[in-house]
Structures are given as structure tokens and as C-alpha cells.
């Protein structure tokens, strides 16, 4: 549940510097961000400005060099690896530009895997009594791929693969969906389908979405558009 001010995700003064072979490359320079529950936020900006790094920090995939991250009102950046894994498993959903489906599994097994990994963290889910199979079927139905549930990713079009990735991201009913250029590898028709889907999930299900995109037309569908330049938001 979001905290009392309705903020589900808060990032304060996030800084991050990559270090490699003694060379330091600062990427984020004190980014502040607050996302309300059920908000659809897009982040735009040129390549290399730090969008994906910020998303990885927000998604607990990367520890920032400095700053604080709160999810549902709880500070999470200092948690241990295990606790962050549990949070990622229970509250976050990811959609990537490259889909990141497991090629050895069918569409429904890819989706089911997310549920399987949720495991015990799913214990308090209100729908815990429903079978995993039902939930997988519903998620695939939601993205319009019920008829292709047994197909492996290699047998699906790129648009379909991304829809499977979205089904995988939403099957566990996350509070926050983080999408890193989900339409970047899609043609305009499929991009529109995916964006419609994300917008519908946001409107109908109240899913909070933070999406990175280069496409200004797609960004217009969001409640709020943030532009990042050189490691900080423009309006900062």
C-alpha cells in the first residue's frame, strides 16, 4: 500500500558513478523523483543520460553511489541482497526493450516462472487461493495471447514476445511496473499495441508505471513526462 501522501516510489538525491579500471564515470547527479500510486510516468532523454541507470536503481537491480530510495514508504536502498530480491519479487515488475524471455520455455511457462519465483512472498496476496495456472491464463488473456500460450519465444513475433513479457511482469500483481523502452524494438503498430496495454493496465488496474521511451508520441500517453539530461531531470 502507498504511504499517506499517495507516493509509492520516491527517490531523493540519487547519484551514481560507474567505476572501471580506475576510471570514474558519473551518470546520475542527485536525481529526485516521486511517483504517485496509479500514476503513469515516462522518462525521456538522449542516450547515455542515465535513464536506464535510474530505472535499475529504482528497480533495486543496482545500488546507487548515493541517495535514498523508498518504495511504499519504506527505505529500501540499504536493504541486504536477499531483502531487495524479495521486494523485487513481490512488488516490482520489469519490462525490457529486449523482452528478456527465456527461450527454452513456452509463453505460459515464462509467465508462470514469475509466479514460481514469487513463491512464499506471494503468501499474503489476496488471490493466493487461485491456482497459478488460472493466473497465468488470465495474464496471457489480458495481453491477448491465450491462443499462443504454448509457443516458445522463437515462434512468436517481436510484438507478441513483448506482450508475453508484459504478462510475465503483471502476473504477480506488482505495485510498480518499470519499463525500459518497451517499444524500442517494435514497429509502430506493435508499439501502439504495447502502449495501449500499459495504459490500460494503468487505468483499469491502477498499476503504477514508470516507462523509459525515446518516442515523444508514446510519451504523450503518460500522466507525466520527465526529461533527463546529463544525469538529472530537466525541471530539477
Amino acid at each position: 500500500m502507498a504511504n499517506s501522501d499517495g507516493i509509492i516510489l520516491r527517490a531523493e538525491r540519487i547519484r551514481h558513478t560507474y567505476r572501471s579500471d580506475g576510471i570514474e564515470t558519473p551518470v546520475l547527479h542527485g536525481v529526485d523523483l516521486a511517483v504517485r500510486r496509479a500514476e503513469f510516468v515516462t522518462i525521456m532523454g538522449p542516450s547515455g543520460c542515465g535513464k536506464t541507470t535510474l530505472l535499475n536503481v529504482l528497480g533495486l537491480m543496482m545500488r546507487p553511489t548515493g541517495g535514498a530510495v523508498e518504495i511504499d514508504g519504506s527505505r529500501v536502498d540499504g536493504l541486504g541482497d536477499g531483502e531487495q530480491t524479495m521486494l523485487r519479487r513481490g512488488k516490482l515488475g520489469f519490462v525490457f526493450q529486449r523482452f528478456n524471455l527465456l527461450p527454452v520455455l513456452s509463453a505460459e511457462r515464462n509467465v508462470a516462472l514469475a509466479l514460481e519465483l514469487r513463491g512464499k512472498s506471494d503468501r499474503h496476496d489476496a488471490e493466493r487461493n487461485r491456482s497459478a495456472g488460472q493466473r497465468v491464463a488470465e495474464a496471457l488473456d489480458r495481453v491477448g495471447l491465450s491462443d499462443k500460450r504454448r509457443h516458445k519465444p522463437g515462434a512468436l513475433s517481436v510484438g507478441e514476445q513483448q506482450r508475453v513479457a508484459i504478462a510475465r511482469a503483471i502476473v504477480g500483481r506488482p505495485r510498480l511496473l518499470l519499463a525500459d523502452e518497451p517499444t524500442g524494438n517494435l514497429d509502430s503498430r506493435n508499439a501502439a499495441i504495447v502502449l495501449d496495454l500499459l495504459a490500460d493496465l494503468n487505468r483499469s488496474d491502477g498499476l503504477t508505471v514508470v516507462m523509459i521511451t525515446h518516442n515523444e508520441h508514446l510519451a504523450d500517453r503518460a500522466d507525466r513526462v520527465l526529461t533527463m539530461i546529463d544525469g538529472r531531470f530537466e525541471q530539477q
Partner: peptide, 16 residues
């Protein structure tokens, strides 16, 4: 390696 990254992004822990 990439697949392991995917699993981790989905919440796969060390034990898994």
C-alpha cells in the same frame, strides 16, 4: 549469463 540476469530481475535469489 543473460538468462541469469533475467531470472535475477524476476526475483530469483541465490538459493534458486
Amino acid at each position: 549469463t543473460r538468462e541469469i540476469g533475467i531470472l535475477k530481475s524476476l526475483g530469483a535469489g541465490r538459493a534458486y
